[in-house]
Design a binder for these strands. Structure first.
Lengths: 147, 147
DNA sequence: TCCTTTACTGGACAATGTCCATTATAATTA
DNA sequence: TAATTATAATGGACATTGTCCAGTAAAGGA
């Protein structure tokens, strides 16, 4: 059980860290796409064959909303829909060439943002930051049954 | 300079951690207030005498939007506006008694959410998580000039 | 005083997200 | 097999959230 003081410090971290990441996310708008549009594109690009429902579930988004975003991406020729052979109700989503290019650009920008975030920190502290965050990741999300 | 692999791991952490916190934030709706309304209330309650502009700046919100939220809180008798003696354009915002009660409730819920988040983790790992996050906090946000 | 800036606010609107109903197909059960 | 139930995708209608601009009042200079 964590003490109240410890909880408060974690909450402080949460506030400042999410604020910081929020600022970075706003810059996704460089591309002219909204945050959710980018998320959907990245999600589709990160998997070999997703259906709209899977995208919605993975991103915890409303199915209807997701459908609209996907259709917008299709209209913009960033994504194509293909028939699924297993389930005629379902579609398989793939990036087009320009979708893939946009994916690469956003992915690259995201990497640069993180590099920029830590750019003022000396190398040794950067490593320490990296270790802290991956430690936190492991404790929170990895083999949860093994705790 | 962090390697690509390290950057990717940090981005993984960011995604999962913000998703997790996002889920927790949705539960603020228990109170019947939106996330931004809660943020404004918490911001006002955490400082002794803030003006609407200061709230907007601190939360990085549009002034007009902030104004509307504050006025809603005033209508609900959670916040009162007082004249500033230094600047007649500006208002000083204070919580009412019931505003303070709501503040306490949200604050308490936020604490419980963090406790719940770590509840399945054994005590020693919880400490380690705490240390990781505060280390990250210090590196990222503390005495930035000293790095 | 005159000009510029700032704090707050309302109107109008844009973007984002939610809910419900419909259609088509699958899966399950009688 | 036939009937029933569940699921995938989507559109319509709507609610919520957030942005932009303009106006008023007060400060703060030059």
């Amino acid at each position: 059980m964590l003490s109240q003081k410890e909880i408060n410090e974690i909450r402080s971290f949460n506030r400042k860290y999410t604020d910081q990441l929020g600022l970075l996310n706003k810059q996704v708008f460089n591309t002219g796409f909204s945050f959710q549009e980018s998320r959907v594109l990245l999600e589709i690009g990160s998997h070999s064959s997703l259906s709209p429902m899977e995208v919605a579930k993975n991103l915890d988004m409303d199915a209807s909303y997701t459908s609209r975003i996907i259709n917008k991406l299709v209209k913009l020729k960033l994504v194509t829909k293909h028939e699924s052979k297993e389930d005629a109700r379902s579609k398989i989503l793939l990036l087009t060439k320009s979708g893939q290019e946009l994916f690469d650009r956003i992915d690259d920008d995201s990497n640069k943002q993180i590099q920029h975030l830590v750019s003022n920190i000396p190398a040794q502290k950067q490593k320490e930051l990296y270790k802290s965050l991956t430690t936190a990741y492991d404790i929170l999300f990895k083999n949860e049954s093994e705790n």
